[in-house]
């Protein structure tokens, strides 16, 4: 066991527990963005940073395993410095984000949006500067990939690689120009992507989305010549029950 303090209160947690888990176990919520349990613990987005005594910079809570070397340390999860840093991280992400939020497939269900609200981002254009302009990959039948909305959390990459053992997407280029795309920038349709869509459900923003075929359905329904027959899979009802989604 390791004895630490979180926001001044003493706790004892098992060695190897991450700061994030230790906090969660004790009812303290640290916001996260790139972290996806079991598959993506890379400490890249820096939303979950905390202040830790003795550390020369802020620490990403999702990837820091507490060990005997941390005995007695104090961790501040919501200090002004931490909150300011988290906010600035979001502002930086927004400065290179397609801000067409009102027309986005994920509007209202976007993790970036939710975090901005939580952390009080009141100036979405605090940082000005060049934005990347990427082509939208609409090549495959089931989805599109819009890197202009991508925040490089790499959750999709992890889903493809770790859940599915496929790995047809990954980071290309580097630095500001980093883009999550297929090898050599080829179209998704030309890869052995199996169209499972796990990347879509992993994506926190609207960068990845299924191709919307509902207009075709509306059209068919309105066509007096056509008989529309609908079938549904059993699993649909298991996630549809979330009433907050259906108004």
């Amino acid at each position: 066991m390791v004895n630490i303090k979180i926001n001044g209160i003493e706790y004892s947690v098992e060695e190897g527990t991450t700061i994030l888990e230790a906090c969660r176990q004790n009812g303290i919520r640290i916001p996260t963005l790139c972290w996806l349990k079991d598959i993506n613990a890379i400490g890249a987005c820096r939303i979950c940073v905390v202040e830790m005594s003795g550390a020369r910079s802020l620490t990403a809570a999702c990837v820091y395993p507490l060990s005997k070397f941390d005995e007695g340390k104090n961790i501040l999860t919501h200090s002004p410095a931490v909150l300011e840093s988290r906010k600035m991280t979001l502002q930086l992400l927004l400065s290179n984000h397609n801000m067409d939020c009102l027309a986005c497939a994920r509007s209202g269900n976007c993790e970036l949006q939710a975090l901005c609200k939580e952390l009080g981002v009141d100036d979405s254009s605090y940082f000005e500067g060049a934005k990347n302009e990427f082509d939208i990959d609409t090549s495959s039948k089931h989805m599109y990939r819009d890197d202009n909305k991508c925040i490089n959390c790499r959750r999709c990459v992890a889903a493809c690689e770790k859940y599915q053992g496929i790995g047809v997407i990954g980071a290309n280029e580097r630095g500001f120009k980093t883009e999550i795309s297929c090898a050599f920038g080829m179209d998704l349709a030309n890869t052995a992507c199996v169209s499972c869509g796990q990347c879509i459900t992993a994506c926190p923003t609207g960068a990845l989305s299924e191709k919307d075929d509902t207009d075709k359905v509306w059209e068919a329904l309105a066509d007096p010549e056509k008989v529309v027959v609908v079938q549904t899979a059993p699993a649909v009802r298991a996630s549809l029950g979330r009433l907050s989604v259906i108004r």
Binding site: R24, W35, L36, C196, A235, S239
Partner: peptide
């Protein structure tokens, strides 16, 4: 193809990481 089967399919209603990280949606939906 999908971990947990179709209940966790790529076309299902998206649960944010905030939920996925702490609730096993596969088990709940199953």
């Amino acid at each position: 193809a999908c971990p947990g089967g179709c209940v966790n399919g790529g076309g299902q209603v998206i649960q944010p990481a905030e939920v996925r990280n702490f609730v096993d949606i596969r088990a709940e939906r199953a």
